[in-house]
Design a protein around this nucleic acid. Structure first.
Length: 345
DNA sequence: GTGTTCCTAATGCTTATACT
DNA sequence: AGTATAAGCATTAGGAACAC
């Protein structure tokens, strides 16, 4: 009997869940990642009350659920989000009168205090070490240099980086077009010459040193530290994704994460909590330290509500370019002195 | 064995809203 | 107006699987 009841309730809850998600998607226009996160949170919640119709829960039940999360050792942020999702979920059913629920049982559940944390960034010296180290030791140095130079000189997010297409890099006008960034927003970021060079090298031939050009490439396996421009990674169908894995496929976020961590560890700049987002923070911090004003920083980082390209073009691009030139790594170049060192090994 | 992806729980970051 | 919290959107991390 208990089993039958449980199955029936679970189905009812599942129906609620599906309806709510549909509403989020079609009425609120929620982004895919929001949908995924919300669904996970709600499923966990419903599993906790699998024998009950969740619309019949009381405030006390929600409170008990919150305690169970805290008990499970989840971080305050996680608990708060879980509660926030549940609250929104009930709000929907309270607002739609086809349901016999008059009050939102999660309405007055308090969030936990979230401790302040110090964001981790890479110091200037460490950023230099990263770029130099890639050139010296990277198996796919040209590609990897281009990837991390892009992070450090533009402050893009990983998701934005892996979505970049070759035609998003505009060498004539000197900017990178970020489409569909967080929240579905577009923006363009000025590209300083050093970054343009790195990307051009990667796009044009990917051969670091002239003499290597003379050797013939026998197979794909010959891609190496010197010879790793984009064209060497391209396989049969090319969707113009800018950064490709050695299999010729677009990178996943985890792939870049792995790449970064392995370099960071190899080069001795890894620290706890160091992540790709630290590169974004580093870029913005560098610029901020140089006295770049917040308005400009917002433009670069995409925090402003710059919704469209047209919108962006209205702002003073030269100001932003000036700002970018004050990036402390802006004079960082491929050091041909390294050639000798590398060759002599 | 290395580089990469896939899966999924956990949590960080950014923007919107509420409160004072 | 400034700060705190909520809501919304994204990244991080760990481990298994898999291609080369």
């Amino acid at each position: 009997m208990q089993n039958v009841l449980s199955i029936v309730k679970a189905n009812v809850n599942d129906l609620y869940l599906r309806e709510y998600l549909l509403y989020l998607k079609s009425d609120k226009g929620a982004r895919p990642k929001t949908l995924i996160g919300y669904e996970a949170d709600l499923r966990r919640f419903m599993n906790h009350f699998s024998t009950r119709d969740v619309l019949e829960l009381r405030q006390q039940d929600i409170r008990e659920y919150k305690f169970s999360l805290v008990d499970a050792g989840l971080a305050p942020r996680t608990v708060n989000r879980a509660i926030s999702v549940i609250r929104s979920f009930y709000e929907y059913f309270v607002d739609h009168d086809d349901y016999a629920i008059a009050k939102n049982p999660a309405k007055h559940i308090q969030g936990m205090k979230v401790p302040k944390t110090v964001p981790i960034t890479l110091g200037e010296q460490q950023a230099k070490t990263l770029l130099d180290g890639i050139m010296l030791t990277g198996r796919y140095a040209v590609r990897d240099y281009a990837i991390f130079a892009t992070f450090l000189f533009t402050g893009v997010r990983v998701s934005e980086l892996i979505a970049l297409k070759t035609y998003d890099v505009n060498f004539e006008e000197g900017y990178i077009h970020v489409r569909d960034g967080k929240g579905g927003k577009d923006r363009v970021i000025p590209m300083i010459p050093q970054l343009a060079n790195a990307l051009q090298l990667y796009l044009q031939n990917g051969i670091v040193y002239e003499e290597i050009q003379k050797k013939k490439r026998k197979s794909r396996h010959e891609i190496n530290r010197y010879r790793c421009g984009r064209k060497y990674f391209v396989t049969d169908e090319d969707d113009q994704t800018l950064f490709l894995t050695k299999y010729g496929k677009p990178y996943s976020e985890k792939g870049i994460d792995w790449l970064f961590k392995s370099y960071a560890k190899k080069l001795g700049i890894y620290k706890d909590g160091l992540s790709l987002h630290a590169l974004r923070r580093s870029c913005l911090t560098f610029l901020h330290k140089q006295g770049v004003d917040l308005f400009v920083l917002r433009e670069i980082s995409g925090h402003a509500r710059v919704q469209t390209l047209e919108h962006y073009l209205a702002i003073d691009t030269s100001k932003v370019m000036d700002a970018m030139k004050r990036h402390p790594l802006h004079s960082h170049q491929l050091d041909h002195g390294l050639v000798e060192m590398v060759r002599s090994r």
